[in-house]
Structure formats: structure tokens, C-alpha cells
Design a binder for these strands. Structure first.
Lengths: 172, 172
DNA sequence: GCAATATGATTAACATGTTAAATTGTTTGG
DNA sequence: CCAAACAATTTAACATGTTAATCATATTGC
């Protein structure tokens, strides 16, 4: 007994303006839904190992390198400073990572993964790879590669596009 | 004077396992970065009108219909119940939406947008449409449509894929 | 009719996203 | 050398994401 949502054309945007793109098809929504559809498969495994998605991103990034400065880690793991700061505090208390201060510049800190952290990575990675493989098989390897290319192209395309009204939008 | 991040091949995944997909190219990361590249352009306009992304999603969804039940709105706006509950409380206090209780079932509530809310939508929408148009021009209308199709296909493809280890993962 | 169960919505509790401010350390211009 | 400007990180404050628990109402089985 669902009410008058979706399915219909019951627009009432006041004036006769085109009612904007059908909401569920907006690009941000499509991207969000796609990402959620992907992550839904990874989260149970991460959760079973006591990791959140962001914690995993950090450990995953660290597993490939010796050490990295906090700012660079923020870029690589795609996290903002404050989130990263909190998560590093937690991961450090769990002995999954280690931190050192850069001698030549005491403001900077470097982060590296511990043996315990690596062990955790190695425990989770096979699950992730299996899931990724299954996804690739279902969606198609070529299509997946094409999708990635299109996403990266979109990203660079939009990064090149100037952001309007960001600096001085006084006359709004 | 950036340290030894990115660019290199300095893997050390302990054993000789393939070091997993290059991190920045994982599908979830690609989707997240693409979405952020898109939203970066919309946020200033929303912010200038005192709206967050989620608040906008809700008003946007409401603007196309007469009223909708809370649960259905959660689906349409792709928000979880608790988030929606908090945001609706705020939007109601700002008189941008109205709520009513369903007479036949006092547990359910319906939400609708107010005239003030519609006015706000109409003030923001032109900006959004202009930005969307610019994006389409830069990326290419056909490519954008293809991308959307591929995203939707991926979504349905992954929704059809069973989630492993979700119910009973005792032997982990 | 009523206890047991199920359902819609909210609240609770904690992690993260996000912007601004504070902290600490470094560099620079005089 | 030192005050001012700058830079890396953290803290603060608040909104949202996320899971579990709660509350109020409905439904069901007896």
C-alpha cells in the first residue's frame, strides 16, 4: 500500500519550468548508488576484521610503501586532515601503524604500517580480491576497464572546469 | 621535497603476493573521486543558499511530488532513517517542509515541501542546471549518457550478486 | 480481548565528513 | 635576532553515516 511516490509524473514545480532531471538519474546519485553497490560487498569482510572502510583505505595505502607523511597520506587515501588525524590516533592505539616525527621539520609526521598491520592486511586481502574478481566476472573485465577510464576522464575533465561562485559571490 | 610516496614501485607486501590493484585505481576510489569532482561544483551554490547536499537531495525529491512517507523518502533520497530523521527535524524547523501523521496508521508520517521550500528550490535550480549543462558540454553528452548507463548496469549487476559472509560467518 | 510479535519512526552512541580555529614549528623581512 | 607571515597538524564544533536500541502503534495468534 505504497503512496504516491516515484513512478508517476505528479510534478508541481510551481511555474512551468522543466522539473529538472529525473532525480534518481542525476550524476551524483548514480555515482553514489554505484559506489554503495560495490562497497556493500566489501563491508562485511572488513567489519569481520574490525575495520571501517576508511581504516582499510589507510592500511591499504600504507601496505605498499615504507612510510609517508600525513599530508601525503591524506591525498592518497582521499581523506581530509581532521578525519585522518582521528583515525590515525585510533590505528596507532591498536598498534596497526606507527608514527615518527620528521627530524628536519618537527611539524611533519610520518606514518608507517606495523607488522601487525601487515598481518591484518594479508588476512583481509584475499577476501577482497575474490570479491573483486567476482565483480569483474559478472560485469565484464572490458566494461569495467572502460568504466574506470570514463570515470578518470570525467574526473580530470571536471577538475579542469573552474568552480563558479567559489571565491567572491557577493552579488547573490 | 615530497617523500617516497606514489610514483614508485616500492612494494613490500611481506610475501611475494601481487601487491593488489594499484590503490588509486580501485573501483570504489574511482567512483568516490568522480563523485567528489562533480559535487565540488555544486556545493558552493548550495552552501550559498544555506543547504547541505543531503538537505538539497530531500527538497529536490519533495519538489516533484505532493507528499511522501518518511520510509519512501529515505529510499528516494538515498538516506538512512536516522540521518533523514535529523534532517527532517531541521528542515521542519526552518519551515521548508511540513509533516503530517497518517490517520490510518499513526506510526507513519508523510512529508511535503512548503511554498518557502519550493521558492528555495527555484532559486537554486537554475545554478544547478547551468553547472550540469557546462559539465555535459565539457565531458560530452553522449559520453555522459553512456557513463550513466554503465553505472546503472553496474549497480543492478552488483545488487544481483550475493553478499558473501553477511549472515553467518562464524568460522572466521 | 490480549499477550506476543512485527513495523515505522526516532533516539542513542560512536565514526567520519567538513569548515574554522588553535597549536606548534618554520621561514622571512627588516 | 625577532616579529610577522606561513605551514603541518590537531582540535573544535556541528552535520551526516551507521548500527543498535527504544518507543509507539499495528497486527496476529490464541
Amino acid at each position: 500500500m505504497r503512496p504516491k511516490a516515484s513512478s508517476g509524473d505528479g510534478r508541481k514545480t510551481a511555474a512551468g519550468q522543466a522539473p529538472m532531471r529525473e532525480f534518481s538519474r542525476s550524476l551524483p546519485m548514480s555515482l553514489m548508488r554505484a559506489r554503495e553497490a560495490v562497497m556493500r560487498h566489501f563491508r562485511p569482510s572488513l567489519r569481520a576484521h574490525g575495520l571501517t572502510e576508511q581504516q582499510w583505505r589507510i592500511l591499504r595505502a600504507l601496505s605498499a610503501i615504507d612510510s609517508i607523511e600525513v599530508t601525503d597520506l591524506a591525498h592518497v587515501a582521499y581523506l581530509l586532515g581532521p578525519s585522518l588525524s582521528r583515525i590515525l590516533r585510533d590505528l596507532e592505539s591498536r598498534r596497526l601503524i606507527e608514527r615518527k616525527t620528521v627530524k628536519s621539520d618537527l611539524r611533519r609526521g610520518t606514518v608507517s604500517i606495523t607488522a601487525k598491520g601487515l598481518k591484518l592486511i594479508e588476512a583481509v586481502a584475499p577476501h577482497s580480491e575474490a570479491i573483486y574478481a567476482e565483480m569483474t566476472k559478472r560485469y565484464g573485465a572490458q566494461k569495467l576497464a572502460d568504466l574506470q577510464d570514463m570515470l578518470h576522464l570525467l574526473e580530470s575533465c571536471l577538475l579542469a572546469m573552474p568552480v563558479r561562485g567559489d571565491e567572491a559571490a557577493d552579488d547573490e
